[in-house]
Design a binder for these strands. Structure first.
Lengths: 148, 148
DNA sequence: TATTTTATTTGCATATTGCAAGTATTATTT
DNA sequence: AAATAATACTTGCAATATGCAAATAAAATA
């Protein structure tokens, strides 16, 4: 039996570091959390505050403030939903889309670099495994809210 | 070609959530960062401040303050190194060891639960893949300091 | 219409972060 | 040996992030 905790401990730290490579796009300095928010808004269709906050398993009050920052930076737009004025629909501005695309591009480049240290067979196995792991985690009771 | 960013985005978030399940041991409330610190101190042999901070790729000033907290909680002990009085050697107190062991236990239980959603073959493949990924990341130039 | 529920925001109070500058000790240079 | 530089760590900010409790405002329900 492996020591899974050790593996995860290291991996978690490394993911955190990899994630830090995200966040300088031209003049914009963005935090990791903010990059995750941009990513989710881009991914979802006309999402509300709640939806994104829940997808990222963030506290809604913290999230609210992060959105305020991103709106101030003119990366995110917030519009009241026509059918329900309590709800705010989030979207990326043109700038926001540009920033999100830049981050996506560089993150993928970093990941390609990481995977370049494997052969083709390993690459495929690892990718397949990560998908399996994601599925298992989504089924798990102890972990992990973001539903997808 | 897969969208690796998507896979990593989700995985990173989930790891973060899983990690949050770490930190309540009896009366102690510990942060995620602090649980990582306890883990590393336990793992290494008579480590200095620098060594642990570097293993976790933490800023030394932030680390210094975290250690102060852990010392105040009586989970960590700090002793000047005999050969070099500038250096502080870190160790876990009895309580610290207990807390670290408790966290280790519950994290492993959580991980077992996650892996219970796979069959034996998948489990082995995934574990092997995570090790491969760790190795690749350690070779990477864009990522990821903790050396091991 | 009155009450409850839902979506989001604000008020705190606390914790975390990292840069710049400081202290103390050891190593190197002259 | 004295002066200088390098190292290990700590402290002073100042900015940012966090989350609970309470507030607001708009539906939904009674």
């Amino acid at each position: 039996m492996e020591n899974k905790r050790e593996i995860f401990h290291v991996l978690t730290r490394r993911f955190g570091l990899l994630d830090k490579n995200c966040c300088a796009v031209g003049n914009f300095e963005i935090s990791i959390v903010q990059s995750h928010i941009l990513y989710e808004i881009d991914k979802q269709f006309e999402p509300s505050m709640q939806q994104i906050a829940e997808s990222l398993a963030m506290d809604i009050t913290t999230f609210s403030r992060q959105i305020q920052s991103l709106v101030k930076m003119e990366l995110v737009k917030k519009a009241p939903a026509p059918q329900d004025k309590r709800v705010s629909i989030l979207s990326l501005s043109a700038q926001g889309k540009f920033v999100a695309a830049s981050i996506d591009h560089s993150m993928n480049a970093y990941l390609e670099e990481v995977f370049s240290h494997m052969n083709e067979f390993e690459r495929e196995t690892v990718i397949r495994s990560l998908k399996l792991l994601n599925e298992a985690m989504s089924k798990s009771s102890v972990c992990c809210k973001p539903l997808y």
